[in-house]
Design a protein around this nucleic acid. Structure first.
Lengths: 339, 339
DNA sequence: TCCCCCAACTACACCGGTTTAGTCGCGAAC
DNA sequence: GTTCGCGACTAAACCGGTGTAGTTGGGGGA
């Protein structure tokens, strides 16, 4: 009884046909301005809202976009980053009452299966692909399914999808320059899995830029867990000539590394400088607080949403957006190395 | 062209009517077993999947449930907890191909507005209400909208919604008993906002149980931020007779408090024991690692999902589920107080 | 043998929008 | 004065399922 008003209810009340109401509500020609105004007023008065399913059925807009995180969620350490991204996206999309469908899955194959499900159920109008891989099996699937998508990461060279990207090369360069200016000569990098494009890119940047500046440098890959971050740190600090600075691919690993250093009696920052690629509450509350690259993740999410809307509107669009390089926030974990 | 097969396609191929196919696919009487088998086989062969919107339009199942987090997302510290909850829910629901629609909003009024939107757009079949408040304005709205819902928190006494709950009273009792057994006599509690029911409950438990054991105890409310957690810690440790143990309502505040203690030259755990109500990576990687209450958050999420399905199936259901009390995980941040 | 009943199906309306193919009326052009 | 054109609107099909009211055929009971 008290069920939501439909377009037919509005039509009856205004005295026009349902079709006319649809025209009016969607701002398309076919009704006079006077009638349109009447209809809009009545719709507002009756508190009308489109029935999503009905729209999705007729047209083809599901009114939702999808974001899948493929990680072992029990050990996820990047919640903060993706929470911010999600929030940025939602703020940008809620005005158009588009929902963001976020789902956590175990691995990439589950992610791909989910894309197929979503496609066949018409659940989403577009996808955001995060954690881009060097050789990414998702790209083929997305193309096959013909769902509009953007990547958050480097532009996929071979297989063009529009992307919103941060220049990880330049980011690493910024860090290396900063550390070199402080007179650090032996820099280590506790990286993520080289499977990920951003990790690969950072490793490459360190190798190239480090050697061009005459530094000794090295990247140790990990699985992003605090355990492996700690282990890598322990290995590095046990060497005869340990690095004077370690750059970590994530805040969790950096904090874990800091713990190892303190435990091993290596004072931070005096004997070891620590830099993290991620900023977060965690980076702020450990002692000393971590020097890190910081970016406006919220903005990044909003940008992703905008780009995705563009691709949905025009599936042929291939416009990639480069976002500003993260800036270095210096905190207590870095200083000149003691001689 | 290569568009998804519909029920009509299957019907044509099998040589029956679309209605019969619908019966067969939904396991309801009206077709013979032989025909049903044929239909199921052809459906699988053609890789048929129901069109969500079509189902939602006819019946009334949107195939999604909603979860809203109302916090200032820029300072969110509980990502880990809710990520786990979300994952647990998704695992439990994906088998029935029900999606979890999670959204972050700024505050409770935005949360309520979102519920109204979702209701009028028929986006969700049910809601999970988290961060239950002492006097919760959401309860009336949910009842008014007549959406099946469960709360994650204490059972709402006045206004019965089924809930999945953890006994915060007993949790606090566990901590107090543990600290008392170690001979702590002055215990402080850095709490969240007393607006939240679980915080209020913990404060009450500490007051009652502490005094019954002859302890001096006190709760300081905060906004859950690391800044206020740090400030409260500073205030407590500056007193003439500072507490020998502090219990924090969140891992972020506990870690921030730990930082303050070390900075003020108060050795942890010798002069100050620290206990956190939340477990997480953070609690593990700081030094010393934090003693905390730990619970299977993933299970909790799954349980929430089950309960919600129950209410959706039978909106009159009022069954609340009490989950097991979190267990205390002792790490390096607690010990007997130095005399 | 006839009738009734029931299982097994079909036909069709329906959900709430969108969209296309008209219809109508009126002013301008010839 | 008839015709053309166009703006404003209506009727009806359609999207892909679900649910209900028939319809049919065959077996069992009287």
């Amino acid at each position: 009884m008290a069920s939501r008003p439909t377009i037919a209810d509005i039509a009856k009340r205004v005295g026009v046909s349902p079709g006319a109401v649809s025209f009016a509500l969607n701002g398309r020609p076919g009704v006079s301005e006077a009638t349109r105004a009447r209809i809009l007023e009545v719709a507002r008065e009756m508190n009308w809202r489109p029935h999503r399913a009905a729209r999705a059925l007729g047209g083809s807009q599901a009114g939702a976009v999808g974001l899948v995180l493929a990680r072992d969620p029990r050990t996820l350490g990047s919640e903060h980053f993706y929470t911010q991204i999600l929030y940025g996206m939602q703020e940008a999309l809620s005005a158009r009452s588009i929902a963001v469908q976020m789902q956590l899955v175990r691995d990439t194959s589950a992610e791909i299966a989910l894309y197929r499900d979503w496609a066949s159920e018409h659940r989403v109008d577009g996808l955001v692909l995060v954690d881009q891989q060097v050789s990414d099996p998702r790209l083929d699937v997305v193309r096959e399914l013909a769902i509009p998508a953007v990547t958050l990461g480097l532009p996929a060279v071979a297989d063009q999808l529009p992307s919103v990207w941060v220049d990880d090369h330049e980011a690493m360069t910024t860090i290396v320059d900063y550390l070199a200016a402080l007179d650090h000569r032996r820099i280590a990098h506790v990286a993520g899995p080289p499977l990920y494009q951003h990790t690969a890119r950072r490793m490459q940047a360190l190798r190239e830029h480090g050697s061009s500046r005459g530094l000794s440098s090295e990247s140790l890959p990990t699985d992003f867990s605090d355990a492996q971050g700690a282990a890598a740190t322990r290995a590095l600090l046990s060497r005869p000539a340990p690095p004077t600075a370690i750059v970590y691919d994530s805040d969790v690993m950096a904090a874990a590394g800091l713990g190892v250093a303190l435990e091993m009696g290596v004072p931070v920052p005096q004997d070891l400088s620590i830099v993290s690629f991620d900023d977060s509450v965690l980076a702020r509350i450990v002692h000393p607080a971590l020097t890190c690259l910081s970016r406006n993740t919220y903005e990044l999410g909003a940008q992703v949403a905008e780009s995705l809307l563009e691709v949905i509107a025009d599936p042929a669009s291939r416009r990639s957006v480069r976002t500003e390089t993260p800036r270095l926030v210096v905190r207590g974990s870095t200083t000149r190395p003691a001689r």
